[in-house]
Simulated scan of single mutants.
Amino acid sequence: MRKPTPLPTELDHRGFLVDDAYASGVPRWRLQTSGYVTPSRGLRLAKGNEPDLELLARLHTAVTSRCAVSHFTAALLWSMPLPLHLEEEGLSGLIHVTRRHEAGRMKRRGVVGHRAPLLARDVRTLNGVNLTSPEWTFVDLALHMGRASLVAAGDYLLARENPLSSVEAMREVIERRPKVKGIRMAREVLPLLRSGVDSPQESRLRMKILDAGLPEPAITKAIFDEYGRYISTPDLQYEEYKIALEYEGDHHRRDPVQWGKDIERDDRLRAMGWIVLKFSKVQMNAGWTHSERKIKDALRSRGWRRPPS
């Protein structure tokens, strides 16, 4: 048996196009050794490596012209939050790829092919991968996600630091795709998106509050004391009623320094007359009935009354 020769340095040893290997002088027999798998024709991946979504996406968009990874694949590469079942599907090894209508649907093993009237501005390049723009991807997700999850994904695109999109850009794509499946959900969700949200769970908490018929809390608004000193920026708040709502993720619990700072912050708010309500994954799921009552009771204690229907 021949001893495998090292691959040329210009090839990514984790995975590459067969045509690129031949162009670099790699003999055919070298690509037929047991060290490689063929995820799709014209591609090779080194055996034993952890699945790499970005590498697979880069290879698939390189081997086929006029295409872009899309749907769940693009959402994961943009780091958009997805419900767990969609995240698992996106990481399953199947790559979603969209081509322009005139190019024809991509038909390859391991690929879910789509066709759409993509314009140049609907395709971006991220780390060498051609993928659908954040706003185009948002509309693609609308068919597959519930309202709260789609709001969380849209809020993520409007992040306080380095936002990936804007409401105007999303509206432009929505108006340009009036007949795509899921467009009604995308239209419904657009007015609910807010910029400056720090986590998907904050978005979901806000939606649960709205679905309960309670007033919408403000997002990431700084609170100062009577001397103008900064105290806190709660995840959500009712400034009029002096009620702060905080979602506590696992990182708060695991980091004792952060946990201590949170306790001191909340003590300062309470000293200023604020009610501080805290929520975790438990309160958001099985414990939501109690959490909803807790918010209502706090609002009523500060004079809020539900307007007559």
Rank of each mutant, 00 (worst) to 15 (best):
135 E>D: 10
163 P>L: 11
183 I>P: 05
185 M>H: 02
179 K>D: 12
164 L>G: 14
112 V>Q: 10
171 R>P: 05
170 M>F: 01
128 G>E: 13
202 E>G: 06
137 T>Y: 02
187 R>W: 05
217 P>A: 06
143 L>R: 15
129 V>Y: 07
220 T>R: 15
141 L>E: 08
185 M>V: 08
119 L>T: 14
177 R>F: 03
147 R>A: 12
138 F>I: 07
191 P>R: 05
209 I>T: 02
146 G>A: 14
210 L>V: 15
196 G>E: 10
148 A>L: 08
176 R>Q: 09
128 G>W: 09
151 V>D: 04
211 D>Y: 06
168 E>G: 05
124 R>M: 15
128 G>K: 11
143 L>G: 13
225 D>I: 04
221 K>Q: 11
180 V>F: 03
178 P>H: 08
156 Y>R: 02
116 A>N: 07
187 R>L: 00
138 F>T: 06
132 T>H: 06
225 D>E: 09
139 V>W: 09
195 S>G: 14
213 G>S: 10
160 R>D: 13
165 S>C: 04
151 V>T: 06
200 P>G: 07
149 S>Y: 00
171 R>Y: 00
148 A>Q: 08
185 M>L: 03
134 P>M: 14
208 K>W: 00
211 D>C: 08
120 A>H: 13
175 E>S: 10
208 K>D: 05
208 K>H: 11
171 R>G: 01
190 L>D: 02
136 W>Y: 14
158 L>F: 03
214 L>C: 10
181 K>D: 00
114 H>M: 09
192 L>E: 11
194 R>C: 10
183 I>T: 09
191 P>F: 04
161 E>V: 12
175 E>R: 14
137 T>K: 04
183 I>E: 05
165 S>R: 04
209 I>C: 03
138 F>Y: 13
190 L>Q: 06
118 L>S: 05
170 M>A: 13
144 H>P: 00
135 E>P: 04
157 L>F: 07
128 G>S: 10
137 T>N: 06
112 V>K: 10
224 F>M: 10
178 P>W: 06
215 P>I: 05
161 E>I: 13
221 K>T: 15
169 A>H: 11
189 V>S: 02
138 F>M: 12
123 V>E: 03
202 E>T: 03
209 I>F: 11
196 G>Q: 11
195 S>A: 15
171 R>A: 14
126 L>A: 07
115 R>E: 15
123 V>D: 01
114 H>I: 03
205 L>G: 01
205 L>K: 06
190 L>I: 00
143 L>A: 15
143 L>E: 14
219 I>H: 05
126 L>S: 11
148 A>R: 03
219 I>R: 00
146 G>H: 13
141 L>Q: 07
165 S>W: 06
201 Q>T: 08
183 I>W: 04
159 A>C: 07
195 S>K: 01
209 I>A: 00
157 L>K: 07
124 R>I: 13
199 S>G: 05
117 P>W: 03
178 P>M: 09
159 A>K: 04
173 V>R: 15
159 A>E: 01
174 I>P: 00
154 G>H: 02
218 A>C: 00
171 R>E: 13
141 L>R: 01
218 A>F: 01
205 L>T: 13
164 L>A: 13
130 N>V: 08
